[in-house]
Simulated assay, not measured.
Amino acid sequence: MNNWMSLLKNGNKPALLAAIVNIVIAGLKAVAFFLTGNVAMFAEMMHSIGDAANQLFVYVGSALSRKAPTPKYPNGFGRIVNLVCLGAVLIVAILSYETIVGGIHHILHPTESGGLWINLSVLGIGVVLESFVLFKASKEVLHDAGVEAKGFSSFTKSFAHLKKAKPPTKLVFMEDLVATSGGLIAIISVLLAHFFGWFASEGVASIIIGIMMFYVVGKVFLENARGAIGETDEEMLTHISHLLAEDPDIVDIQRVEVVKEGEFLHVEIIAEVATSNTVDYVLKVKNRLLTTILNQKGIQDAIISLVGDDGVQSWTGSNSSNLIENRAKLPE
């Protein structure tokens, strides 16, 4: 039990915060929907339920992914977070479908719903709380990317660095961005229905919210599918390759692999050193390189093999593309 609790403490904090907030919001929206019968509120309720479930799964998955390797699982558990995110988006996909179907039905058979101030109050509270979580998630995105920002600039800058965020952080950010936008759309639809008599607007809002949820499903599914398979981090691959190329003791680089393992990176290197070096000296070079590489952001483990210079130049000195293209031809 203590091991589980210590693991959960290391889970993704924005995901836990978002889950708690969405549970509260889902409860408020459920009450409002049953009191008013508002279809846009139903869409928002479904959205919040899906987000809460997702974010709880993601929080637990991000915690489990940090579990240390075992003899039975020597490669560790890093990709668990990708698998959890894949499962989470399936829930969102089902709720997205139900939301769109409900919206279409309301457009074909529009009905008037009451409780204007109940709907506006609940949706307003939801937008405020979701905005708070979104702001926290944007700061976590910048933290993952190693970028500093203060105030509202954290939110604007987070879009440019979203690709560098960890899978759980990215999922929370995208879900809360849709949730905040969806809340505003639902408010507009309620006002249109009440003041202009366009009751179908609530159905239109439901469809728009469902489509936005489907966008998150597609985006997150593709990214985590690549992560579950084992995707190369091209930016870090280039960075590590140049670190090796600039090292005075490295004569040539045969192979560099930088693979994403959930939230972390796994590095494998085969490099050449001068054949005149002693074994003791080569071991010191290896330990020095290992320390340097493990100090790079996001790298959890590295395997370095140093071999004697074979006289054939593999590294071009310009970028990592030559290595990427020729990795299949290199010895394993």
Score class of each variant (00 low, 15 high):
Val267Cys: 06
Tyr215His: 05
Gly197Gln: 07
Val220Trp: 01
Asn224Tyr: 07
Pro71Val: 04
His106Ser: 14
Arg79His: 02
Val84Glu: 00
Ala328His: 15
Gly262Trp: 07
Val141Ser: 06
Ile303Thr: 15
Ile107Ala: 09
Ile269Asp: 01
Val279Cys: 06
Gln55Leu: 08
Ile23Asp: 00
Ile229Met: 09
Leu8His: 09
Glu231Gly: 00
Ala165Val: 03
Asn75Asp: 04
Phe132Met: 10
Met213Gln: 07
Ala160Met: 13
Val204Tyr: 13
Ile118Thr: 15
Gly76Pro: 10
Ser113Tyr: 14
Leu323Val: 00
Val127Leu: 11
Leu222Cys: 08
Val259Ala: 08
Ser96Arg: 02
Ala228Asp: 00
Val312Ile: 14
Val172Asp: 01
Pro110Val: 08
Ala193Asn: 11
Val31Glu: 01
Ala18Gln: 02
Ile91Gly: 10
Leu330Asp: 03
Ser154Trp: 07
Leu243Ile: 02
Met45Gln: 07
Leu237Lys: 08
Ser62Gly: 09
Asn319Ala: 01
Pro248Glu: 12
Ser241Trp: 04
His266Ala: 02
Ser62Ala: 10
His143Ser: 15
Cys85His: 01
His161Ser: 09
Ser154Leu: 02
Ser153Glu: 13
Trp315Ala: 00
Ala15Trp: 04
Met236His: 01
His242Tyr: 06
Lys13Glu: 08
Thr70Pro: 03
Val312His: 13
Asn38Phe: 02
Thr292Asp: 14
Lys260Gln: 12
Asn3Thr: 15
Asn326Thr: 15
Ile91Ser: 02
His143Ile: 04
Glu223Ala: 10
Val60Asp: 05
Ala149Val: 05
Gln55Tyr: 05
Phe34Thr: 15
Leu95Tyr: 06
Val258Phe: 04
Val220Ile: 14
Gly27Tyr: 04
Gln296Thr: 13
Ala53Phe: 14
Val220Cys: 07
Asp144Met: 01
Tyr97Lys: 08
Lys72Tyr: 06
Trp117Glu: 01
Ala18Ser: 12
Lys297Leu: 09
Arg66Pro: 00
Val273Lys: 07
His105Lys: 14
Lys170Ile: 06
Glu223Arg: 04
Lys329His: 07
Glu223Val: 06
Glu257Asp: 09
Gly102Glu: 11
Ser276Met: 02
Gly262Glu: 10
Val216Phe: 05
Val285Arg: 11
Val58Met: 13
Val178Asn: 04
Thr70Leu: 11
Glu272Lys: 07
Val217Trp: 14
Lys284His: 13
Thr99Met: 15
Val273Phe: 09
Glu332Pro: 00
Ala205Gly: 08
Ala274Met: 09
Gly203Cys: 11
Met5Arg: 12
Leu16Ala: 09
Gly218Tyr: 13
